[in-house]
């Protein structure tokens, strides 16, 4: 780790101000990814502002505004607490499941909801400073593009970056159309729809998100929905637990009789951002919730996939995973 000053923030306003003043400052919340990257010399902040004491960990119903009837998760709430909160388990089991699919018990006890959104890719070329990586050091090239890219993207990658985004939580949030509430140095709060929060690499892969430096994630808002009875988070990985996804699928359905009124599908492990499978969703609306229709939807989504040298399997795996996740969703988590 490079030397840094450590400051323990006591209120959000001064914390944001401190951050905004120093382009090399970072917030420290759970630290599970930041310290990991600092030890690898990938992240090199000169100042850490510890925001873990800020009072931003409530989980509460939203009582007014467009998302009335939904719930709000504090940005500094721990992943464990979000996953186990009765409101979340009752109304957003998809989110609980996605959180519980990620990392380990210890890490979920440390990691915060806001911090989880800002996880960086686990691309090994990003992690090893001796390797070229446009995300870590723009202009050096992408080590994975023509290197070992089994774990990498099949959607939306660019010649500059083929990394995938690692969070499970954000995949569920994407399916649930969540909003990210951020506060800037001038004290203003705004809501960024999760779909606009993340971005594809394009020619600026160093930017993971559209969150500018100097803003703090204060909360995540979940709109009210009718998916709670029919949702599933499927995570396919190289070992049974404690591994990043090869492919993951957050699937949620709202049905009337056996007809699909609304479908939400988001994928992890396939792109630089949580991948909302809009084509598959469109295929499903108004159709019967049948295996055949799930397959048609999966085919529609995966038709656009562009695999790299070592990850062609993700196209087939993604296809099967969409079908399976939808089946699990309608069967209440059972195959």
């Amino acid at each position: 780790m490079r030397p840094f000053t450590y400051t323990r923030a006591t209120d959000a306003t001064s914390a944001i101000k401190l951050l905004a003043e120093n382009p090399h400052a970072k917030f420290l919340a759970g630290g599970t990814n930041l310290l990991d990257l600092m030890k690898e010399d990938v992240e090199r902040p000169t100042a850490l502002i510890d925001i873990s004491d800020l009072d931003l960990n409530d989980i509460k119903p939203i009582t007014a505004g467009v998302n009335q009837g939904g719930i709000s998760l504090g940005g500094l709430g721990k992943n464990t607490d979000a996953a186990n909160h009765p409101l979340v388990r009752q109304h957003y089991p998809l989110l609980s499941q996605a959180i519980l699919a990620g990392a380990s018990g210890q890490i979920r006890n440390m990691a915060t909801n806001g911090g989880n959104l800002l996880q960086r890719t686990r691309c090994p070329y990003f992690y090893e400073v001796a390797m070229p990586c446009n995300k870590r050091e723009p202009g050096t090239g992408c080590g994975a593009r023509d290197g070992i890219n089994r774990m990498h993207a099949i959607f939306g990658w660019s010649e500059h970056c083929v990394a995938v985004y690692p969070s499970d939580l954000a995949v569920a949030l994407t399916a649930l159309d969540a909003g990210v509430i951020v506060r800037s140095a001038n004290g203003q709060q705004r809501r960024i729809p999760i779909a606009d929060f993340y971005r594809l690499p394009g020619d600026e892969p160093e930017k993971d998100t559209n969150l500018p430096h100097g803003e703090l994630i204060t909360a995540i808002e979940l709109p009210k929905n009718r998916f709670a009875n029919q949702s599933y988070y499927l995570k396919v990985r190289d070992r049974a637990s404690y591994a990043f996804a090869l492919v993951s699928v957050a699937a949620a359905l709202e049905t009337e009789g056996n007809t699909i009124k609304q479908a939400r599908i988001a994928m992890g492990g396939v792109a630089h951002k949580p991948w909302r499978a809009l084509k598959a969703e469109q295929m499903l609306v108004g159709k019967e919730a049948t295996e055949a229709n799930f397959k048609l939807a999966a085919d529609a989504e995966m038709a656009d996939a562009k695999p790299l040298t070592h990850n062609a399997f993700k196209v087939e795996l993604g296809n099967r995973s969409i079908v399976l996740a939808l089946r699990m969703a309608v069967n209440g988590g059972k195959a």
Binding site: R8, N109, M110
Partner: peptide, 18 residues
């Protein structure tokens, strides 16, 4: 793994300062 304020956490990813 150690237990901080009752929760199991990873001491390698915890700054002592925090």
């Amino acid at each position: 793994t150690v237990i901080v304020n009752g929760s199991r956490v990873l001491s390698c990813l915890t700054l002592a300062a925090s």
